[in-house]
């Protein structure tokens, strides 16, 4: 190339010949009265061209390239992502390549709604689960409680019917690493529900044992208590005398009692009151004792424990009334 004729490479769209036919839409004074974008020229330049092609609904390769730049500048702009999906479809691009692209972006911005939605849509279009389980596992290596990641994994498993022992084993692995990972507990529950095993006696036995092992050692772990109570939602806590016996034993053997343990026993008493077991009164007394203890060991929730105490009496009165009316 001779001097003077070399192609100028500019970072700005406004200097590019292949964009010369587009009139950018720059921010008007009204659009900048407040919350003015605190951005450099490259940002304003790219987005003013984006606005222009969006307005004329242009479908072209150069627009697709433009969305690349805009996403680099702000990965949270949902309009750019939506436009990019429209372009992907219309231009018939390779969706697997797009999946690799979004994978990198997610790793940089793992807490962004748009990027995860983009990924979900792509996987849905591709129509098979590919390496989505591995992908989310890689995200959890960095952040085991990433909400979007778990939401994505749930969707993949539900959409492609991947429910099974492998998913349970995955949560076991994570829970052995950190039994305080509530996201893993929730996922385990989700899998059992989807698998329709949550009410099977055999499953319940295994899961209750798993909880006992963890809660027995770590009584201050709320997640495991919530999970255990969750397992027994349909039958009620009192449907499992073995669990009650275990919790009572734990109570009598522990000195520095976690409030979760006492609260679990309180819930058992509450159920007994509701069912009118042993005339109810003995359980009201015990419930009140637990509430007093809870006020002491867990004062930040004093008001809640007092409310529970009143609730115990209320439930008892209601139960007596009910029994009188339905002898």
């Amino acid at each position: 190339m001779s001097e003077g004729t070399e192609v100028k490479s500019s970072p700005f769209y406004r200097d590019r010949d292949d964009w010369a036919d587009i009139t950018p839409i720059l921010p008007t004074p009204e659009e900048n009265t407040i919350v003015r974008i605190d951005a450099g020229e490259a940002f304003v330049d790219a987005f003013s061209y984006l606005r222009a092609v969006l307005q004329k609904k242009e479908i072209s390769e150069r627009c697709f390239q433009l969305t690349n730049d805009c996403i680099q500048l702000n990965a949270a702009n949902y309009t750019v992502w939506q436009y990019r999906r429209d372009l992907l479809k219309a231009l018939g691009h390779d969706l697997k390549a797009e999946l690799r692209f979004i994978g990198d972006i997610i790793m940089e911005n793992p807490k962004n709604y748009q990027v995860w939605h983009h990924r979900r849509t792509l996987v849905e279009w591709i129509g098979n689960p590919g390496d989505e389980l591995d992908f989310t596992a890689a995200v959890f290596d960095d952040e085991p409680k990433n909400y979007h990641g778990w939401q994505h994994r749930q969707w993949v498993v539900r959409h492609f019917h991947l429910v099974g022992q492998r998913e349970i084993d995955y949560t076991t692995k994570l829970l052995l690493e950190d039994s305080y990972n509530n996201s893993a507990w929730n996922y385990r529950y989700f899998i059992l529900q989807l698998w329709e095993k949550i009410d099977h006696k055999e499953t319940l036995d295994i899961e209750i044992n798993f909880c006992k092992q963890i809660a027995g050692k770590l009584t201050h772990n709320e997640s495991v208590w919530n999970y255990l109570a969750g397992l027994l939602i349909s039958g009620g806590l009192i449907s499992r005398p073995d669990v009650i016996e275990w919790a009572e034993k734990l109570y009598s053997e522990t000195e520095n009692r976690a409030h979760y343990l006492v609260s679990f026993l309180l819930d058992i008493e509450m159920e007994k009151i509701e069912e009118g077991l042993d005339g109810g009164l003995i359980h009201v007394t015990r419930a009140k004792q637990f509430c007093k203890e809870l006020e002491e060991i867990d004062p930040v929730r004093t008001n809640f424990w007092r409310y529970q105490q009143a609730l115990a009496e209320n439930k008892h009165e209601k139960q007596i009334l009910h029994a009188q009316q339905h002898p």
Partner: peptide, 17 residues
Amino acid sequence: DLSKCPTYLDASRPWLC
């Protein structure tokens, strides 16, 4: 902070308001 908007909130300007 009502006068300016960082680029990562470019799609959340009404939120800033």
